[in-house]
Structures are given as structure tokens and as C-alpha cells.
Amino acid sequence: MAEDTETTEEETASDDTEAPAEETETEEQDDTEDDGAEDVDEDAAPEEELLYGVPVRRAFGQTVVFADAESYLDLFGELISDGFQQVIDLCGADYVDHVRNDLPASVIPERFEVVVNLISHARRERIRVRCQVAEGAAVPSLFDMFPGTEAMEREAFDMFGIDFTDHPDLSRILMPEEWNGFPLRKDFDVGRIPVQFKGAPGQS
């Protein structure tokens, strides 16, 4: 709860008052068993809608679910069993100088996001997962479920320095192997870094 109030301070005053109130309400009703389940739905603000046990939002006609590093792998396990058999895209995003106002109240905003787009061929549906990642924190790799994420996770690591645990080969993919810094981070200035040359291996 302490963390919640800290983060909401950055947001608007109305959010600040609403968010903690919802939290306490839902917690109370969780304690009082399932009888009040319908009441919870009515009382909770529409942004507290859940899908696969995590908050969900519909943005511009697209379904977006929100995860953090703990709920990440479980969420993908459920997505697979629900028919989302292909990870189409995985990328990082750095929110260091942009306060998002499109997060559900229970999601704690962090500096980085890992954004995963999945597709279900059978249902012809897409879903997007936005996972909050703190600076220096790690996300589990999706390699064992979707081996196609190997290159995408390498790119997110290369560009943002996001660490994927249990990845088979987390190395730079677009930048040279001994490059310093993460180019797509917002604090990596354009044009400040001189071109970094290197010799061919074994010829130094």
C-alpha cells in the first residue's frame, strides 16, 4: 500500500483519491468469501476489470492486459491454453519521462515496459501484454514457450538493457558486441556518442 500511494502522487488528484479506496474495498470483500462477488464487480471502477487474473483494458479497439514480472509466466501459460499460440512481437519501451495515464489503478508503473503481441489463429484475435519492469529488474524469458521470442528479447536487451532471465543467449543483436549503453533508452542522447569502431576478432 505504501508503494501505491507513492506512485499515485504523481498522477492526478482524482486518481489519488480513487485508487486506494478501491484497493481497500476489494480486499475486504475478498475476505468475506464469494457471496459478494457480483457486488465487487459493480463497486469496482471499470478499469479494475480482470482477464486471466490480471487487469485488462481496451485501448483503441485492442485488448491489453497488464502484468508484472511475477505474474508474467503464469499469464502466458494461460494465454497458451486459451489458444494464443503465436507471439507476433515483443519489444521494450522506456517511460522515464512520460507519465502514463492509461494504466489501471492497481498497476504500479515502472520505468520500462515489455510489450508482447500475441495472436490466436483459431479465434482470429489479438491480445497485447504490457509488463512493467523496474530499472535493473529482470523478466523471465518466454523462450521455453515461444522460441521465436529469442531474437526479439535479444533486441529488447540490446536497445533497453532489459534483462531476461533464463534466456539461452542474451547478447547484443543489432549493436556491436562490445557496445556501451542502450540506444533506445530516453537518456541515451542522439548524436552524442561518437562512432565506435572495433577490430576484427583475433587481429587485435
Partner: peptide
């Protein structure tokens, strides 16, 4: 754009 990412088919297909 604050962030623009392109999902390039060739990038994924190379795997």
C-alpha cells in the same frame, strides 16, 4: 511518437 516500434517480418523470419 514517444516510441515507435516496427515488427519487421524479415527480422523474425530470419530465426
Amino acid at each position: 511518437p514517444y516510441r515507435m516500434h516496427v515488427r519487421a517480418p524479415s527480422f523474425v523470419n530470419l530465426q
